[in-house]
Nucleic acid binder design. Structure first.
Lengths: 173, 173
DNA sequence: TGGAAATAGCTTAGCACTAAGCAACTTAAC
DNA sequence: GTTAAGTTGCTTAGTGCTAAGCTATTTCCA
């Protein structure tokens, strides 16, 4: 399964070759990394979405439930905390919460200490569903990763990505 | 700039720690890779968008122009080729082409050999603009990459990503 | 050669998001 | 204690996508 592959050509290599023909002056080294990251991200989003989809959840809804789940008992956060964590505007969050509340997966209740604010809490159904969804999503990821790389190279990849993430998310000048 | 970093904790490490507290049974190793890939992809999309944005282009428009540009002279493709390359429905492509044609960056003309089909061609303005935009986008990527990793580790990262991309884009069973 | 199937690009309806702005409320400043 | 400033969640308008369906045209093949 995980013997180091002979270096095959992938779709990103093909794009880079095309650029080399028409714009040989360009330095395309960064595409080798970011072009692939973009495509992997998109492909894995599709795979995960398929895993939750079987449970009737979209990616956005899953993200809300998972954020509540991993906050621990009593599975309660404010809409603001959720939209900040998920890098979503408050308008977008209102829509997600509406849908999830209608599906009975969470509950909105007034915050007892601040009458402007709300508390969003997972219901029992929501808790049970998200536990299954997290398992399914993670299984899809694990399967893909271990089919591509052994544990050692996967760990090496994770380290390189960690350093790149720091820089990428640092406020641009 | 590129001395191997002391292992700092990043946002993905924090999320994984949270899961470990509330669901210690989960195998979260794959998140180390795909969680970071997702976040880097998002962060870099924002950065690139900012680079083209200065030229009045959104990411979607840029992608269309760049695909035409790297196809080489005479910078002509069909709407179908474009939507297939960019993994976009034909409806979405119609909208992008409308906007770009209105801006004078490309032209639609009938295909002489197939009366169902069109040919989409970059105008001179479109060609000049996309050449500037590609330079700007690539500069933003190059800057981020070289601030995070030296050339050697960047190449190593590219190789690991290539293998992961093969598996991620392979049709799921 | 004629008819069925496939393909091209467009249209429409629906969805999920952002940006901007709102009223209600809380906090800070003096 | 009053006023100014900030925060919260929601609403609205606008954007860009998908899915499904349409017409016109081409290709396949019996």
């Amino acid at each position: 399964m995980n013997t180091p592959q002979p270096p095959r050509k992938d779709p990103v290599d093909a794009i880079i070759e095309q650029w080399a023909k028409v714009r040989p002056d360009l330095d395309t080294a960064a595409m080798e990394v970011f072009g692939r990251i973009h495509r992997i991200s998109r492909a894995m989003a599709d795979r995960s979405e398929k895993a939750y989809g079987a449970l009737g959840l979209g990616r956005g809804e899953f993200d809300v439930l998972a954020t509540l789940r991993r906050s621990g008992a009593p599975y309660t956060l404010s809409p603001r905390q959720l939209s900040a964590t998920l890098m979503l505007t408050t308008g977008g969050m209102t829509g997600r919460l509406d849908k999830l509340e209608r599906a009975g997966l969470l509950r909105r209740s007034p915050d007892p200490h601040d009458r402007r604010a709300l508390r969003v809490t997972l219901t029992e159904e929501g808790l049970a569903l998200v536990d299954r969804a997290v398992g399914a999503g993670l299984a899809a990821q694990t399967e893909t990763l271990s089919a591509a790389l052994g544990p050692e190279r996967a760990a090496q990849l994770a380290d390189l990505l960690r350093e790149l993430l720091f820089t990428a998310e640092t406020a641009e000048r």
